[in-house]
Structure formats: structure tokens, C-alpha cells
Design a protein around this nucleic acid. Structure first.
Length: 160
DNA sequence: AATACGATTGTCT
DNA sequence: GACAATCGTATTC
């Protein structure tokens, strides 16, 4: 079974929809680093930023369509440190680039919870992508109402 | 081979 | 708000 089990409530994610999306690493096409994004869905894309922080993504689309979801904040479970912000989250969960490309699915059991209302989700611009031209304004940051967000949701944020 | 910079965070003013 | 830490990646020479 080998895989690591991560539990917790996902409260903040961002979508990166390359190669058109200039904020995405895959905007520059297929490279050694982005090869995981170009691979099959259900795998982890883990990269290093600023020489010291790892970031965890979920590859979401079919091979050849380099989209990924950046996991920015998690409500920490027992024994887990701060998970607010993609770098601190990986540090708390001991996730680094050695996990790049590992499969996230299939689970042994898939539970569909159709008995509850989905949480209210705000949509707002992504964090730290000022280099991306017009794409920096795309409302592709998705946040649940939580005290564990990496940054506050800006005033005027939309609803999903 | 050399260079520029980043999907971040903490510290200091 | 400004800035340093720190190194892999992509780009350029």
C-alpha cells in the first residue's frame, strides 16, 4: 500500500490552466519540470520555489493538457503544524520533490457525500502571480470559510 | 558556462 | 511596505 495518507479539510486551492495561462509553469511548454503536469491526472506535481519551499499540486486533466490545482491551505489534523500557505503546508506534511509524480488515486474506497450542502466557496485572484499579465486577475483562487487561509479573501470576492 | 528569477515566508521599519 | 534567504529551472551566451 505504500502511499501516504493525508487527512484534513482542504480550504484553499488555486487552478493553473496551462499552457494558455501565463501564470502556470506549463505556459512555457513541456520541460523536465513540467512533465508531471503534462502527464496523466491523479498525480502529485511537487516543485521547489525560492530555493527553499515545496508546493503540492494535483494534476487534474488528461495527459497532454497541463492543468493542476495548487494546494494552498489545509486545516491541520492532529499532530500537524501550520498548513496555511503552500510552502508551510508541505513543510508540515513533510512533502518534497521526491513525491513529484506519485499517484494520488485510486483510493480503496470512494465516498460520495450527497447529504450535505457544499461549503460556501469564494473566488478571487490568485496569489503571487503578478508576472502573469492579464492572467493574474483571473478569479481562480477558491477558498472555504476558514481561519487557516494563507491570506485573507479580498473584499468583493465572488461566490462560486 | 553564466545568468535571472520564482505559484514563499519571516523579519524589520 | 521593503527586503533577505536560497537553489533549481529555464534561458541565453
Amino acid at each position: 500500500m505504500g502511499g501516504r495518507r493525508l487527512t484534513g479539510r482542504l480550504v484553499e486551492v488555486e487552478a493553473y490552466l496551462g499552457p494558455d495561462d501565463l501564470a502556470a509553469h506549463s505556459a512555457r511548454g513541456l520541460t523536465p519540470r513540467t512533465s508531471t503536469m503534462y502527464g496523466p491526472p491523479g498525480h502529485a506535481y511537487v516543485y521547489l520555489v525560492y530555493g527553499m519551499w515545496n508546493c503540492l499540486n494535483f494534476v487534474t486533466q488528461a495527459a497532454g493538457e497541463p492543468h493542476a490545482i495548487l494546494v494552498r491551505a489545509l486545516e491541520p489534523g492532529p499532530g500537524v503544524g501550520r498548513c496555511s500557505g503552500p510552502g508551510l503546508l508541505c513543510r508540515s506534511l513533510e512533502i518534497d520533490r521526491r513525491l513529484n509524480g506519485v499517484a494520488l488515486v485510486p483510493p480503496d474506497l470512494y465516498l460520495v457525500d450527497d447529504g450535505h450542502e457544499p461549503p460556501a466557496i469564494t473566488v478571487s485572484p490568485r496569489i503571487g502571480v503578478d508576472y502573469a499579465g492579464d492572467w493574474k486577475n483571473r478569479p481562480w483562487r477558491f477558498c472555504a470559510d476558514s481561519p487557516h487561509l494563507s491570506k485573507p479573501v479580498p473584499a468583493g470576492a465572488g461566490r462560486l
